[in-house]
Design a protein around this nucleic acid. Structure first.
Lengths: 118, 118
DNA sequence: TTGACATATTCGTAGTTTCGAATATACTAT
DNA sequence: ATAGTATATTCGAAACTACGAATATGTCAA
């Protein structure tokens, strides 16, 4: 694989590498929203939301269009939503693993398990 | 979606947000490789590769097993490869768009197109 | 034991990211 | 023009990340 492709991918990942930006992309999943609506739902400072939107624009993850006073954002490509869906499944799979391991640990060696009650 | 899930996703993205780490995951696509083999193919400093491997371990993107002197790495979950595949398609789609736009621009206004021949 | 090898960790420095506060820009209505 | 609203940008401080050099750890073989 080419260096350019690796760089491109790593920049997309960098763009998504913050919980607030993930939240923005998830909010945009069903269609475009204005910056104001996003800010309201995110419950972060206006400036901060705007900075995160700027990162998403720079990494080409979202596109914006201006309508009068407002700016509407939407996801540039559905592929990114697919990516988030895959990771959601992955997350729950990991969670299942963890729960299973904890259950096994609890039943295998009940007398030496870690104390968590003090 | 929960805060925990968003944080988890952003950490995975953070883990993949570097060209060298993308390269590692791509190298592991066909199966496990030793740290030494990875370092050799990556052509980066040993310490640097090891640091990147440590990030990938911390973010649970790879797992390692020790065999004697060596450490073998593999991808923890195929879902991550799926993600990279989606982004590859995305990358080429973007590229196609760009090429198409350039062609259109070139044919629509032939008399005022950008000079590229000097 | 000793030495050699494979890999990981620590350290210092440089560069980047994040945040809120303040400020700037751009559009609308009066 | 002026004021109000929506959004973006700039600034400085704190936190984080990346790198190479040096060092540490762990395993094998003699």
């Amino acid at each position: 694989m080419s260096d350019a492709l690796r760089k491109f991918k790593s920049e997309i990942f960098q763009g998504l590498a913050h919980p607030t930006r993930i939240a923005i992309v998830e909010l945009l999943r069903e269609g475009e929203l204005s910056a104001g609506t996003l800010i309201e739902k995110l419950r972060v400072e206006q400036a901060n939301a705007s900075q995160h939107l700027s990162v998403l624009r720079a990494k080409q993850i979202v596109v914006s269009r201006k309508v009068g006073n407002q700016v509407y954002y939407s996801i540039r490509d559905r592929a990114l939503i697919q990516v988030l869906d895959i990771l959601r499944r992955y997350f729950y799979a990991q969670l299942d693993n963890a729960v299973t391991m904890l259950k096994e640990a609890a039943s295998e060696q009940p007398k030496s398990r870690l104390r968590t009650d003090r």
